[in-house]
């Protein structure tokens, strides 16, 4: 680092402070990087347990209908096992966090695509998924999986909830 231009040095230092402040405020949400290994880790976390996976994006209007349903369900059933992943680049996390907040999903841990090579991330979730959104999965305790494209219905979610309660 050269010190022959103190003003410039000072500006750089201020810039660094400013950027760290932004970084801190950005990470005030509960959004984590979703990489190629993330889904394997999530599944490991839920090993032997049932959960619902819901994939959404900022640009997807029907996704908002599903987020609203999930938000309401989570409010009523705070222990409902829900994994939410946004397929938007994690650089747009503030926008995503605002939307999650609108639906009461701000406090749950969720993920955002953290690799521009989205094809590989999609494949890591399900090689047969074409990328349409919303996309969801019912993972059961016996490792069976049911996939669904399009908005989930309250009946589907209620049915799964009853199933979980029975098995637990």
């Amino acid at each position: 680092m050269t010190l022959n231009n103190p003003l410039r040095y000072c500006a750089r230092w201020l810039n660094a402070v400013f950027l760290s402040a932004i970084a801190l405020s950005v990470h005030a949400d509960n959004i984590q990087d979703f990489g190629t290994q993330s889904f394997a880790q999530i599944k490991q976390q839920y090993a032997g347990k049932a959960f619902v996976l819901s994939l959404w994006s900022i640009d997807c209007a029907p996704c908002r209908v599903e987020l609203k349903l999930l938000g309401e369900l989570k409010k009523r059933e705070p222990n409902f096992p829900l994994v939410v992943i946004s397929t938007d680049p994690i650089e747009n996390r503030e926008e995503a966090a605002d939307i999650l907040d609108d639906y009461g999903l701000k406090d749950i841990t969720s993920w955002m695509f953290a690799d521009a090579f989205v094809e590989r991330l999609r494949y890591s979730v399900d090689p047969t998924w074409h990328g349409e959104l919303p996309r969801s999965y019912f993972f059961r305790a016996d490792s069976s999986v049911e996939s669904h494209s399009g908005v989930l219905t309250p009946e589907q979610l209620e049915g799964f909830l009853v199933e979980i309660e029975k098995t637990n």
Binding site: C60, A61, P62, H130, G131, E132, P134, R135, V151
Partner: peptide, 9 residues
Amino acid sequence: WYIDACPHH
């Protein structure tokens, strides 16, 4: 294609 979703395609 029965779907209530965004295909982006």
